[in-house]
Design a protein around this nucleic acid. Structure first.
Length: 255
DNA sequence: ATGGCCTGCAACGCAGGA
C-alpha cells in the first residue's frame, strides 16, 4: 500500500500533472494541499475517471485540502473541532482500517507577524487533535505540508534559516510534541541521502541549486510505522513545465 | 539563457506562499 502527500499549489493549474502522477505512481491514498478551489469547482469527475474516490474541503484562492483513495472512504471529517477556523486546512478520512489525516499547516510568514502567532495556536490545537485521533485510531497516518523543517539536516543552509519561520524552536517543539504522541516521521525510518528536500523556492534557481527544505511529511502511528518499508520524495515531479514548488512524498506499507 | 517566481483576483498591482 502506498500513502502519499503533495502540496499542488493550485489544483486548477496542476490537474494535468496530478492525473499523470496518479497514473505513474498509483498511490492508494493521497492527501493534497493548497487546492485553492471552492468545492463547486473541484475537478471531482476527472479524478473519479482516474479511479479515485475523492473528498475535498476547499475555499477560493487560499488553502484547501483533499483526500484521494482507490478504496471506499468513510467518516470524512473536515477541520479540527478544537479550533474553529475559516481556513480550510484539515481533512480526515478512514480507508479500511487506516485513519488518514491531511494537514495544511499555516506558513506563519515571519516570526514578527500575526500569522506566526496564528501558526503557533494552530500547532497547539493540532497536538490536542492528534492526541485524540491516535487514541481513537491505532492505525493513523498524518500527512501534509507541515511547514516545519524538523531539524537542521532538513534545511539546505541551517545558518541562513536559523530562527526564521519554518525553523524556529517553537515550531520544532510542536513537531517533537507530535513525535511524543508516538508518531514516527516515516522519512527518518530509513537511511536517506543528505540534502533531500520537499520544497524549493521558485526564485533564484533554488531547485537546480538544491536550495530546499523538507517541510512535507508522512507521520505514522507505531502500528503503521512497523509496516513501513520505504519513504521517499519524488523530486522528479519538481522538474519540467509548470511544477508545483513542492514535491510529493510517498511511503510504502507492507499491507 | 541576456533572464530575474507563481497563483488568483476582478487585477492592470497586490496578497500570500515559504
Amino acid at each position: 500500500m502506498k500513502l502519499a502527500t503533495w502540496n499542488v499549489n493550485s489544483l486548477n493549474v496542476r490537474l494535468p500533472r496530478l492525473l499523470a502522477w496518479l497514473a505513474a505512481h498509483q498511490p492508494d491514498i493521497l492527501g493534497l494541499q493548497e487546492t485553492k478551489l471552492d468545492d463547486p469547482r473541484f475537478p471531482a469527475m476527472e479524478i473519479a475517471a482516474a479511479g479515485y474516490q475523492v473528498s475535498f474541503y476547499g475555499q477560493k484562492t487560499y488553502n484547501g485540502v483533499a483526500i484521494l483513495s482507490r478504496a471506499p472512504v468513510a467518516d470524512v471529517a473536515p477541520g479540527m473541532p478544537q479550533f474553529p477556523d475559516d481556513h480550510k486546512r484539515v481533512l480526515a478520512a478512514t480507508v479500511g482500517d487506516i485513519r488518514f489525516v491531511c494537514f495544511y499547516v499555516p506558513n506563519g510568514q515571519s516570526v514578527e507577524s500575526d500569522k506566526y502567532q496564528y501558526k503557533l495556536r494552530w500547532l497547539d490545537a493540532a497536538t490536542a487533535y492528534l492526541r485524540e485521533e491516535i487514541a481513537r485510531h491505532p492505525r493513523l497516518a498524518v500527512v501534509g505540508d507541515i511547514n516545519i523543517a524538523p531539524e537542521d539536516r532538513d534545511v539546505h543552509d541551517p545558518d541562513l534559516w536559523r530562527g526564521q519561520v519554518l525553523c524556529t524552536d517553537a515550531e520544532r517543539a510542536a513537531f517533537r510534541d507530535w513525535l511524543g504522541l508516538g508518531l514516527k516521521d516515516a522519512f527518518r525510518l530509513f537511511e536517506q541521502p543528505d540534502k533531500t528536500f520537499s520544497w524549493w523556492d521558485y526564485r533564484q534557481l533554488a531547485f537546480p541549486k538544491n536550495q530546499g527544505l523538507r517541510i512535507d511529511q508522512i507521520m505514522l502511528s507505531p502500528a503503521l510505522a512497523a509496516t513501513c518499508t520505504s519513504c521517499r520524495i519524488d523530486r522528479q515531479e519538481r522538474k519540467g513545465e509548470k511544477p508545483s514548488d513542492h514535491a510529493p512524498v510517498v511511503a510504502e506499507l507492507a499491507l
